[in-house]
Amino acid sequence: MTSMPALTAERLRALHSEGFVLLPGVLDGLQIQLLRHAIDGLKPQHWDYSGLLEHYKCVFNRDPLWLPFLDLPGVIELAEAALGDDCHVIGQTAWRCHPGFQGMGLHLDYLALQLPRSLLSDPAFELPMQICTCHLYLDDIDQDLCPTRVVPGSHRAGRPPRAGEEHWHGQTAQAVLCQAGDALMFRSELWHAGSENSSAERIRYLLQVHYGRRMVAQKFSPYLQWRFNPEVLAAASARQRRLLGEHEEAEYD
């Protein structure tokens, strides 16, 4: 059996080489059912929206139920290895994608630095990560149920995809087909897309967690009106409080 440090190191190498890595069996059946039930009970707040796509922001602040999914075993070790052991959460969102949802085109989430192509194409250069996203799938994902599509290695493109561009260096977007309870971790520069829900009646449930280096700002909406839920803070572990922003003093504090 591979030890956790060795497995984390292997997954970190995949984030550097491919830009993404699939983590099997992160959630068990009870956790999957708990999350699906909790998502069913969410009501829109502030910038949340509903329709064929339901999208709920900052769910960690609504109930202590969501806290354990900020630092899941296997996920948090990888996030800390990629972004530093003082990384924090910059978002936790819940999704329901209904039949007829058309998906999202190929894009990247955030490009921290625009670097010269000569550097990005040098295999000896390791591009540091600033933000990573974890998709926690709550359904078995097949071709009909909104599979996430990823372009391997595209985090080294150094730019977003152009309109109509569907491949990078000969690599086209690949559908991530997986089981309920699996997680996909990918870095913010990776070209990826969300597929349509072409199933007849299935809804895709997804919980998403964004991790950032400490110096990446936590922009929790509604911003100036933001207040942490006291019940959530009281229930949070020391590590979860750090992920929510309770850091040790540093140069810019």
Rank of each mutant, 00 (worst) to 15 (best):
Y110D: 03
Y110I: 05
L111H: 14
L111P: 00
L111G: 00
L113I: 05
L113R: 03
P116T: 03
P116G: 15
P116W: 02
P116Q: 09
P116M: 12
R117P: 03
S118T: 08
S118R: 05
S118G: 15
S118K: 14
L119Q: 03
L119F: 05
L120K: 14
S121I: 02
D122E: 01
D122S: 10
P123M: 11
A124P: 07
F125S: 13
P128V: 11
P128D: 14
Q130D: 14
Q130W: 07
I131P: 12
C132L: 10
H135T: 11
H135G: 05
H135S: 11
Y137H: 04
Y137S: 08
L138T: 02
L138E: 06
D139I: 03
D139M: 12
D140I: 00
D140T: 06
I141L: 04
I141E: 06
D142K: 15
D142V: 13
Q143D: 14
D144V: 02
R149V: 01
R149K: 07
R149N: 09
V150F: 13
V150K: 01
V150N: 02
V151S: 00
V151F: 01
V151A: 03
V151Q: 00
G153I: 02
R156M: 00
R156H: 07
R156P: 13
A157I: 10
R159A: 08
R159Q: 08
P161S: 11
P161Q: 13
P161C: 04
P161D: 11
